[in-house]
């Protein structure tokens, strides 16, 4: 698969209301390139509420259900049930929610839907704060980051949502980043063909909230991966696997220093050398965990209901 093999069709239409340089918008375009338009999108309160534009127009050319903040997975559950009753299972139901709507207020409905094996793809597009309301701290905001509610920098670490979802023993969990479009598209296509709940967590840089030049969105996503701050992996039927280029980064020497990523962003301006050292230590610990997960992880398919 190469970029040129991706469809020219656009289902996120130009003239939408996202900020210039919006990371989630790149991811949305890729979503439709991967899945086509036989899709029903469920969107809670998040930046994508804004991206649509205002009534009577929308920038989305697929059916889109706007729903309450904490309810993406619950609405998807109802839609999936109705489609099954109507024998329309060919349509893919996609929950598309921000990090606040996923790791904080929406975690209950998501956990319930996953436990019930609801047949849908849930995508958390993570810009590491409540972006729509002007960048307040969320459970996905990383340590040290400025937000409007942590003006001196957040003092707690980012919640590890993909592994929380993996603990539900769903058949497919993946991380991605639109800076690696083919990886993301491949994961979406794989997810589409698996029955049950699929969870994909994507890091989507946000120039408005992260305080960097709008032209750097793709570069920052790339740096997040290259420094090892964001690892690309998938957990398929319980088997953990790092994806390129993250798979090479188990070797510490191949990881770029996190400073290259942090110093490009105004939100990390208050970090001390000590903070940076602490973050680097955590990153290294994460990678030790990924290394163990990679070497120890064999899929026990029977546990996951695969026959």
């Amino acid at each position: 698969m190469t970029i040129k093999e991706l469809s020219k069709e656009e289902y996120l239409l130009k003239g939408h209301a996202a900020c210039a340089g919006c990371g989630p918008s790149i991811a949305l375009r890729l979503l439709f390139k991967a899945l086509g338009n036989n899709v029903i999108l469920v969107v809670p309160a998040c930046c994508t509420t804004v991206i649509q534009g205002t009534y009577p127009y929308t920038s989305f050319a697929v059916p889109l259900q706007n729903i309450l903040f904490e309810s993406t997975a619950a609405a998807a559950s109802g839609i999936v049930a109705a489609l099954r009753q109507r024998k329309l299972e060919g349509t893919t139901v996609v929950g598309w929610a921000g990090d606040g709507g996923t790791v904080d207020i929406g975690i209950q409905a998501l956990s319930g839907a996953a436990e019930r094996k609801t047949d849908f793809i849930y995508i958390c597009y993570d810009n590491e704060a409540y972006g729509n309301t002007g960048m307040q701290r969320s459970g996905a905001t990383p340590y040290g980051a400025w937000t409007t509610t942590t003006p001196s920098g957040k003092r707690e670490r980012k919640k590890d949502m993909p592994l929380i979802m993996a603990a539900h023993r769903i058949l497919y969990v993946a991380t991605a980043c639109p800076s690696f479009p083919i990886d993301f598209v491949n994961k979406l296509r794989k997810a589409k063909d698996i029955e049950g709940t699929k969870y994909i967590h994507i890091l989507t840089p946000c120039p408005t909230g992260w305080r960097y030049d709008t032209s750097k969105t793709v570069e920052l996503g790339r740096l997040a991966v290259q420094t090892g701050l964001w690892a690309l992996y998938e957990i398929e039927y319980g088997k953990f696997k790092l994806n390129p280029p993250s798979d090479r980064l188990v070797d510490e020497a191949k990881r770029k220093p996190i400073k290259e990523y942090l110093t490009l962003q105004g939100r990390f301006r208050n970090l001390t050398e000590e903070d940076i050292g602490q973050i680097q230590k955590w990153v290294d610990e994460d990678w030790e965990r990924y290394r163990k997960l990679t070497s120890n992880s064999t899929s026990d398919s029977t546990l996951y209901g695969k026959t």
Binding site: K14, G15, Q52, T54, T58
Partner: peptide, 11 residues
């Protein structure tokens, strides 16, 4: 709302 190019105008 109907899918439209320029839902937010000429951006």
């Amino acid at each position: 709302s109907s899918p439209s190019v320029g839902s937010m105008g000429k951006t």
